[in-house]
Each structure stands twice: as C-alpha cells, then as structure tokens.
Amino acid sequence: MKTNQWIMAAVLAGLASANVLAATPQDMAKQYNCLACHSVDKKVVGPAFKDVSAKYKGQNVEAKLMDKVKKGGSGSFGPIPMSPNPSVPDADLKVLVKWVLSQ
C-alpha cells in the first residue's frame, strides 16, 4: 500500500471511531438497555421518560437521578424497583439524564 493510501485509511478509521463516539442519547439508551424497561412516551416496566421529565420539571435533580440510575431505587414511580446500572460511565449517564429531563 502506498503512503497516501495508508494516510487515507488512517483518516477513515479515525472518522469511523469519531462517529461511534458521537452517539445520540437515543443510541445510548439502547446501548445501556434503558429501553428494556422505559420508553419515551409510554410506561413499560418503568415510567415513560416524558413522565420523569414532567415530575421533575424545574427542579435541579440531575445529580439525584444520576445517583438513582447508578444505584437503583424504588418508590418514586411505584413499587417496582429500578435495577442498578453501575457500569454506565458518568459522562454518558449525564447525557442520558439531561435527555430524559428534556422530554
């Protein structure tokens, strides 16, 4: 392979990996299995993201909700507990919580 072809291959590989890093909140919700129990607009096992957003509208609850997602919990939306999700990186978790609250 010529040098120019190597450079082009490296550039394309970089663009491909940058595209993976630029995942949307919806992609993250799928990746971390949030959508197994939640949806944007209807209750599944857990509340709809729109219901979460409505409940906490105007409140500064990002840190509280990030903690709840990490550690799990129950009682906020009924008796069914939310499983803990400790493997979600904090940066992704922050994006997800902001997205949920923006619904």
Rank of each mutant, 00 (worst) to 15 (best):
M1Q: 10
M1V: 14
K2L: 04
K2A: 11
N4P: 04
N4E: 10
Q5K: 13
Q5F: 03
W6Y: 11
I7R: 02
I7M: 04
A9M: 12
A10G: 13
A10R: 02
V11I: 12
L12P: 01
L12Q: 00
A13H: 02
G14W: 00
S17L: 07
A18T: 07
N19V: 03
L21D: 07
L21V: 00
L21P: 03
L21K: 05
L21A: 15
L21H: 11
A22F: 06
A23I: 01
A23G: 01
T24C: 03
P25Y: 05
P25F: 01
Q26A: 13
M28K: 15
A29H: 10
A29P: 01
A29M: 14
K30Q: 13
K30G: 01
Q31D: 04
Y32N: 07
N33D: 13
N33A: 13
C34I: 00
L35Y: 14
L35E: 10
A36F: 04
A36Y: 06
H38F: 07
S39R: 09
S39Y: 02
S39H: 01
D41W: 09
D41C: 04
D41H: 12
K42G: 03
K43N: 12
K43F: 10
V44Q: 15
V44N: 13
V45S: 07
V45C: 04
G46C: 02
G46K: 02
P47F: 02
A48D: 04
A48V: 01
A48I: 00
S53V: 00
A54S: 14
K55C: 07
Y56V: 10
Y56P: 12
Y56E: 08
Y56N: 11
Q59Y: 04
Q59K: 15
N60W: 05
V61Q: 05
E62T: 07
E62N: 12
E62F: 00
A63H: 09
A63I: 01
A63L: 00
K64T: 10
K64I: 10
K64M: 15
K64C: 00
L65T: 10
L65M: 12
L65F: 09
M66C: 12
M66T: 09
K68S: 10
K68H: 15
V69S: 03
K70G: 02
K70V: 09
K71W: 03
G73T: 06
G73C: 08
S74D: 15
S74L: 10
G75H: 06
G75C: 08
S76I: 10
F77V: 02
G78D: 11
P79K: 05
I80K: 12
P81E: 08
P81I: 00
P81A: 04
P81W: 01
M82H: 03
S83D: 10
S83T: 04
P84R: 02
N85R: 14
P86A: 08
P86V: 13
P86C: 11
V88H: 09
P89F: 09
P89Y: 09
P89R: 07
P89M: 09
D90F: 06
A91C: 08
D92N: 15
L93G: 14
K94M: 08
V95R: 14
V95S: 15
V95E: 14
L96E: 05
V97F: 09
V97D: 04
V97S: 03
K98Q: 14
V100D: 10
V100Y: 09
L101W: 05
Q103H: 12
Q103N: 11
